[in-house]
Amino acid sequence: MLTIDNLHANAGDKAILKGISLTVNAGEVHAIMGPNGSGKSTLAQVIAGHPGFEVTKGSITYVGQDLLEMDPEVRAQQGVFLAFQYPVEIPGVTNAYFLRSAYNELRKAHGKEEMDPMEFLDLMEQKLKVVDMDPAMLQRSVNAGFSGGEKKRNEILQMAVLEPKLAILDETDSGLDIDALRVVAGGVNALKRPDNATIVVTHYQRLLNHIVPDFVHVLAGGKIVKSGGKELALELEAKGYDWLVGTA
């Protein structure tokens, strides 16, 4: 589904990603771990098309297409979804309107009719259950005044509505208490299907108790320094990152 080959990316003049290669197949869950500043959030954002980074070398192929040639909205319409580490507040636009706009853009991109507001509300009723969210949240402005946990839940709600092929969760666990973590992880697991894939970017192992990865990659200094199975996460939890960072 996703093939990253020797990816280099800069923020301004600063090189952040220095040759990342990674293959993600349908049905797989990959965890990207690593210390702060290793480039793991940058990798997530580059895949989604964040304009603040410039790819200087390498390629990303997504379902047979050159992902880097696509605008961010086209990537999203083709099934790429990034759950933001810091979801953006948009005062003045209701969650309901935002979700319906996104959903209808997706439908239009796939040659389907737009869904009217009433039909959409019915759909939302089911989706809200995935993240155990109060319907009243739909009438509030997008993320404005939301608590950290509510923002993360709202990201997963968007994911539930858009049903991406490739979901990337960027530090979705940060700032969550254990109950919120369970709800968010439960939501991600409920959305898992054999034909989609998930990349979980996280600093800590604890999210991986709930979203069990098939592969774990350790990023340090802009490169993948070690890959393994889920047991690698446990090893990192016990030993920290220092023993690997030296090898970068």
Binding site: G49, D71, P72, G92, F98, A102, E105, L106, L162
Partner: peptide, 20 residues
Amino acid sequence: FYMKSRGIGDENSRALLTYA
């Protein structure tokens, strides 16, 4: 970027943010 990353095109994203 946040709006575009949800599939909303450039023009609509700008319009919606201006309204917001």
